[in-house]
Amino acid sequence: MTAELWEAIFKGIWITVQLTVYSAALGAVVAFAVGTARTSRHWILRFLSGFYVAVFRGTSALVFMFWLFFVVPLAFGWQFVPMWAATLALGLTYGAYGAEIVRGGIAAVAPAQREAGIALSFTPWQRMRRIILPQAVPEMLPPFNNLLIELLKGTALVSLLGIPDISFEAQLARLATGQSTTIYLAILGMYFVLAFLLTRVMRLLERRAKAGIGQAPPKSGGILGKLRIEETERSTKAGLAGGAQ
């Protein structure tokens, strides 16, 4: 492994981080928009958002990515910049999973809170903004953390479409040197460190959000507890399963 190849891999980290941040931002917007729409009073909004979630959770992220890359330019004549297509694919897919987290978080707020908002004649928007979400968001953060790690892992898919992220650069380095073991162990380690950092940031956010409504986060125990990146009590990826709600 020469210095140039390592440098290429480090440039790949930057692409992976960018992709993760952009698609997480898009995914968060989609998740909140679709997740709140699913609790709407209007049946058409509920139906459309339910349909969105069913479709995007039902299909595979990679298949959708290929579809955006190869079918959309032919069928509709739009050619995306590769980074944009990848961001769109990841954001829309993981946003659908996020929508279920948002819906679940909103549903978990005690009904009396909503009723109190109605009694005080808050508008629906004020209720959501001032009463429901401040209490729902801290509950959503641990599952969002899991989803974010799934998203980070999902960014590796873009290497199959030629976007030079960590996995793609690793593939090039392997072709150049043939040192598969070193290279792949190194980049698996990089992904692990990235996942660990993401978890730290999310824990911090959770602590802040909980402090904002006067709660303390649960303690994590021991060395294995520190190592445990995903909040596993909440049955991690079960929500990632099918299209049904």
Binding site: G154, A156, L160, S167, R174, S180, L224
Partner: peptide, 27 residues
């Protein structure tokens, strides 16, 4: 037993399947 297994499981879970497939396929 617990710590190495715990580390292994966490490591596999938090790294991309695609890269793991490449690892297995080439290594």
């Amino acid at each position: 037993v617990r710590w190495p297994v715990g580390f292994f499981v966490e490591f596999i879970r938090n790294t991309p399947l695609l890269v793991q497939l490449f690892f297995l396929f080439y290594v």
